[in-house]
Design a binder for these strands. Sequence first.
DNA 1: TTGACAAGTGACCGATCGTTCACTATAATA
DNA 2: TATTATAGTGAACGATCGGTCACTTGTCAA
Lengths: 200, 200
Amino acid sequence: MAKDTKERILDTALELFSKNGYSGTNIRELTASLGMVKSSMYKHFESKEEIWNTLLDRMTAYYAERFGSAENLPPVPDSAEELVSMTMRMVDFTVLDERIVMTRKVLAIEQFRDGRAKELATKHFLSGLTEMFTPIFAGMMEKGIFKRDDPRMLAFAYTSPISALIHLCDREPETTEEAIRQAEAFSRHFIKIYEAKNDG
Amino acid sequence: MAKDTKERILDTALELFSKNGYSGTNIRELTASLGMVKSSMYKHFESKEEIWNTLLDRMTAYYAERFGSAENLPPVPDSAEELVSMTMRMVDFTVLDERIVMTRKVLAIEQFRDGRAKELATKHFLSGLTEMFTPIFAGMMEKGIFKRDDPRMLAFAYTSPISALIHLCDREPETTEEAIRQAEAFSRHFIKIYEAKNDG
DNA sequence: TTGACAAGTGACCGATCGTTCACTATAATA
DNA sequence: TATTATAGTGAACGATCGGTCACTTGTCAA
C-alpha cells in the first residue's frame, strides 16, 4: 500500500510537471489531486527534489528497458511497405501513450535546467531514434531494398522529420491526425527516393 | 532613459526565462542583476505577467520582421553548392545569435503552458522553416538544379533534420561545432540525392 | 524658482512555498 | 492482548513569492 501511493505520487508528479514544469508545480496541488494532504507526501519522499530525481530514475530505466536492449529492437523489415507500417506503429504508439507524451513534455521543459533531463532529451529527441534506425537501414540495404548509402545518415534523415511531427503532436494534440498523415506521406516519399527499384 | 530600462528588463527577463522558465524566475533576481531593487520594476511593467506578454510581443514582431516578410526571404540559389552555403550561413547565425538561442529555449520551456508560446514554437521549430524553404526548392526545380518533386515535402525533409541539430546546439552548446559539421554533411547528402544530375 | 513628473528606493503586505512535527488511525506482529 | 511500524493528519515554521505604497531624487518645462 505504501508502494502504491509512492507510484501514484510519481504518476501525478509526471502529469503536473509536464504541464507546469518542476518549479511551476507545488506539493499542495500534487497531493490534493491524490486526495491527500501535503504533509503526507513526506512519508514517501523526503523532498520535492527527490520526487524529481526518482522520476528521472524511472525515465532512465524505462528508456533503457524499451529502447536500450538489443532484443527489444524492431526486426529489419522485408519490404519498403513493411518499413512504413513499422514506422507508423511506432508513431501511433509514441504519440498516443500518455505517459510517453508527458515524459517528452517534461524533458522539453526541463532540458536546460537539469543535466539528466538534457541527456534524456537528446536520447529521446535525436540520438536514440537515429541509433534505433541505423541497423534497420543497414539491414534493408543488405537485403537490397534500399540503395547502398550511409545507413546512419539515412536513419538521421528519416527519423528527424518524424520526430518533428511527434513534437508537433505533443504541442498541438488537435493536429495529431493530420501530423500522422504527414508522417506517413513523408515515410513513403523517403522510400520512393531511396528505394533500389529499377522501374520508372 | 525610461525606455532603455524597459528594454534592459526585457533582455534580462529573456535571459532568466530561458534558463529557469517563467515560474522559475523571480522579480528580485531579475532586477538585482540590473542593479535595481524589485519595486523599481513596477514603474515599467505592472506585473511579472506583463513582462512575459511584452516579451512574446517582441518575439512575434521580430519573427514577422525577419521571416514573415517576402522581401526578407533569401533568394533562390543558382547552384546546389550555393544552397549549402546559404543553409550554413543560416545555421551559423541562428545558433550563434544569443538572443535567438534564448528565444528558442524559452519557447521550448513554455510551449505547453502558454498559447502564444505554442504558436511561436511551431513556427520557429517546424512550419516557419518549411515555408521558408518551399519556394527555394520550387525555384531550384524550375532552374533544373533539383529533380521535379513536391517542393513542400522537400523543404520539410530538408529543414527538419537541420532543426533537430539546432535544438541539439541549444541543449548542448559544447557540441555545436560537431553539430554544424553534421548539418553540412546532411545538406550535401540531401543534395546528392535530389540533384538533377545525369552522371552516376 | 517653482511645479510637475518620471524613476528609483526601502519598508511592508498577504499569500504561498517547501518542510517539520507531534499526533492519530490502522493493521500486522509478537 | 500488547507492541510496533506505517500511513496519513493538521497546525505551524521560516523563507520567499509577487505586489503596494509613501517617499526621495533628478530633470525639465513653465
